[in-house]
Simulated scan of single mutants.
Amino acid sequence: MQESDHQEDSGPSKSQRKRDMHALQELGEELVKLSKERLAKIAIDDNLREAVRDAQRIPGRSEALRRQMQYIGKLMRDADPTPIKAALDAVKGVSRAETARMHRLERLRERLIEDEKVIGEIATQYPGADLQQLRQMRRNAIREKELNRPPRAFREIYQALRELDLGGGRRDDDEYVMPDEDEADE
């Protein structure tokens, strides 16, 4: 048997396996940083979910936390990282779909501020919307802009639309979408 044949049979190098394990542990660290609500939305194995919850309860940068993170990395080896990574990207607003969703919601907010008739479209798309509250926020946003004040009501409109969108009250999922809180503050 030649040396090149032996290397092909042995699979990835030790260095590559180590890099892969570190990447899985980093993915696990991202899971630990999530809120309980966001973690609940990600489809992961029950053992991994419990290990992540345990890590979230360990205070500070202790040796116990380091060991728990290594354990999470070990559990991650048995999990398919692709859907976990996609879910984390969606949570962080990295995915194209999330980005497009944020932009559509931002356009809806802009249109609402420009024209109060857009309230009718919102009422159709989100039957549970508090239209009176949206009208008041719209008036406040216009006033803030005229007085060169910080865009508090402008952001509140986005948050209200986001809550409506996340609440599942939409009738047409392709029409309007809400951006993440981080993006709305820009």
Rank of each mutant, 00 (worst) to 15 (best):
D45A: 10
D45S: 09
N47Y: 02
R49H: 11
R49F: 00
E50K: 15
E50Y: 04
A51N: 06
A51T: 07
V52E: 06
D54F: 03
A55T: 07
A55P: 02
R57K: 15
I58C: 05
P59M: 09
G60L: 07
R61V: 04
R61G: 10
S62V: 08
A64E: 13
L65M: 09
R67L: 09
M69Y: 01
I72K: 00
K74Y: 06
K74R: 12
L75S: 05
M76H: 11
M76R: 01
M76G: 03
D78T: 13
D78P: 04
D78K: 13
D80E: 08
T82I: 11
I84R: 00
K85Y: 02
K85H: 06
K85A: 14
A86S: 07
A87Q: 13
L88P: 00
L88F: 02
L88Y: 01
A90I: 03
V91H: 07
V94D: 14
R96W: 00
E98Y: 00
E98R: 07
T99F: 04
A100S: 08
M102A: 07
H103Q: 13
R104N: 07
R104C: 04
L105P: 02
R107S: 12
R107Q: 14
R109N: 12
D115Y: 02
D115P: 04
E116W: 00
K117N: 09
V118M: 15
V118Y: 05
I119T: 10
G120Q: 12
G120T: 08
E121M: 08
T124H: 05
D130E: 11
Q133V: 01
Q133Y: 03
Q133C: 04
L134F: 03
R135Q: 11
R135D: 07
M137G: 03
R139F: 02
N140M: 07
N140C: 07
I142C: 04
I142S: 03
E146F: 04
N148S: 14
R149G: 04
R149M: 13
R152C: 02
F154Q: 10
E156D: 10
A160S: 13
A160M: 11
R162D: 10
D165E: 14
D165N: 15
D165L: 12
G167F: 15
R170F: 14
